[in-house]
Simulated scan of single mutants.
Amino acid sequence: MSGRVPNVLSIAGTDPTGGAGIHADLKSFAAQGAYGMAVVTAVVAQNTQGVRGVVALDPEFVGEQIDAVFEDVQVDAVKIGMVANAAIARAIAERLRRHGARRIVLDPVMVAKSGDRLLDEDAVDAVREQLVPLADVLTPNLPEAAVLLGEEPDWSEAEMRRRAHDLLALGPRRVLLKGGHLEGSPTSTDLLCGSEGILELPAPRIETTNDHGTGCTLSAAIAARLPRMPVEDAVRGAKEYLHGALAASDRLDVGRGHGPLHHFFALWEGEGIPAR
């Protein structure tokens, strides 16, 4: 990219407390040295303890937001998070195809950290059929992966390998299947699956309740890095960034539930943008 700062677009819902959704995405983009933009799909009344209400925007208006960005700005990568319903999922897919969007990272947001549902039941098929095939990287956790495959999420780490290939068969170029929901191990292992095979990406677990927006943060960091490096390097670097943001989260005092990550842990410590 000849040193130009990449322009990265988030398509997602809101979080008034700033820990998830477009708020987390924009922080992650900035921390990775990218210029962040946002298209709002739904306005969510939530805090660190739970979701109180969701107002999904008109699908055509979501499409108009996407048009407004692409018709004026060179978009180097796109991160898709909460889409809320089937009509919005279809509108996003149609617009991204129309504009020839590149480097799409899809985080199939379905349930908030509090357990509150963020995706209508009838929208799963639209996400699977319309958005998943557009993704350069699909980043589901185990419950989300199970929903996409129409199965129960009671998987072992060995079973994850087979399921990663099943997810790849849905059409994305690569799948990052996150193993954070597996219990009983001090290590959390994610699997990066592509046509070339599976790469294991282990990381030590961090004991903290400040884990609100981890999926948003990781997928956004991957999108911010993709314009500058190969997918494997982008994923590795994004995981390192997420680990640091989790480890530093206790420096923040935000809310009485699942608190947010410290997205600017390195910048606020004067360490500069992470090198990888």
Rank of each mutant, 00 (worst) to 15 (best):
G53K: 09
V44E: 02
A158R: 15
V175I: 01
V44I: 13
M82H: 11
A126W: 01
A101L: 10
T14I: 05
F61A: 11
A248D: 15
T214F: 02
N85I: 11
I11T: 07
E157W: 00
S219G: 09
K239R: 15
D253R: 14
G100Q: 07
R173D: 13
M82Q: 05
A234I: 07
F264H: 13
I22R: 14
D116Q: 11
C193V: 07
L246C: 01
H99D: 01
D211Q: 12
A30W: 02
A112N: 00
F61N: 05
W155I: 05
T217Y: 12
P6H: 00
L201F: 06
G194I: 12
D107W: 11
A164R: 02
P230I: 03
D72Q: 01
A68E: 02
I104S: 05
E60G: 15
Q46R: 08
I92Y: 09
V8W: 08
G244N: 09
H243P: 07
D125R: 14
E121F: 00
A247W: 04
Q32S: 15
E152T: 15
D107S: 12
L168H: 05
P16S: 06
A45M: 09
P202W: 03
V44T: 14
G215I: 00
H258L: 00
E144V: 06
A93G: 15
Y35M: 12
R52E: 14
P274E: 08
M82G: 03
V137L: 14
P230A: 13
D116H: 12
V137S: 05
V231F: 04
H165Y: 10
T187A: 00
L57Q: 09
K178V: 11
G19Q: 05
T17G: 08
I22M: 14
R163T: 07
G194N: 13
V231E: 10
Q74W: 06
D233S: 07
S114K: 01
L246I: 11
A20M: 09
D25G: 03
K239M: 14
R276G: 10
R162G: 15
L170R: 07
